[in-house]
Design a protein around this nucleic acid. Structure first.
Lengths: 124, 124
DNA sequence: TCCTTCATCAACCAGTTGGTTGAGTAGGAG
DNA sequence: CTCCTACTCAACCAACTGGTTGATGAAGGA
């Protein structure tokens, strides 16, 4: 998988078990054992999931005696939200403009492919 | 990878090339060839990326002579946004409550782990 | 000290992914 | 019909993922 931050966040949340863990952590911090309990996988597997979430910056782990309480880092969600909103707004704006154009046209014009847009190269 | 809709969407966007394609499509529809041009991978590789995006419901392909114009389906973003917002709000709410508790406490109390929350099993 | 608990590390395995090349299909243009 | 363009399908490959088992580390309780 690609190494950039956004890719790591999306990849981390592409697994339902990891999304479930995030959901659980939104309610409150928990230890690895507590997080593993609901699933029929080993605690090692859950530990691996937590490592993926931690690498994505979604979660942090501290130490408290033998336990490693896991904490949700909600700020990273903003990264995603920003990316999503940018392109959603662009797309919606485009539809709005298309609607305007269609409304302003005479009744039967030949069907066209949308004109090649200005080739600005967008950052991912 | 898990087969559920949300997993497919997140997984599709976990690749920077695919996010780039989405960004390009937010500006306007495009053919496979047009989408492939900026990258130094084969058109087949881009076709595969488009299949992943299509399976996730992020993109649709029609037919127009030999060309297969690709169109961004912006509605699917809502699925993600809803998921994200739910847990972001929960996490923020939790912090707010924690702040309230901390403010209401006498000056030096021993550090505690947040009490085990009610074990409601959240959907992913 | 030894034992138990909580969690990680290491090695391994099967399945998936992102890429390739090569062949095939669909539809206009000559 | 033949050729060219635009694209997909199929097979293959190396790298990565999500899981396992077994060993190890770190800290508290006897």
């Amino acid at each position: 998988m690609a190494a950039d931050a956004l890719s790591r966040v999306f990849a981390a949340l592409a697994d339902p078990t990891r999304r479930d863990i995030v959901a659980r952590l939104a309610v409150g911090d928990a230890t690895v054992g507590e997080l593993a309990a609901p699933y029929d996988v080993t605690v090692q597997a859950v530990s691996k999931h937590l490592r993926v979430l931690e690498d994505a910056g979604l979660v942090s782990r501290s130490r408290e005696a033998q336990r490693r309480p896991v904490h949700l880092e909600a700020e990273v969600f903003d990264l995603m939200t920003k990316w999503i909103e940018r392109y959603r707004r662009q797309a919606e704006e485009r539809y709005r403009r298309l609607d305007d154009v269609l409304r302003s046209l005479p009744d039967d014009v030949p069907p066209t492919r949308p004109a090649d847009p200005p080739q600005e190269r967008n950052p991912s």
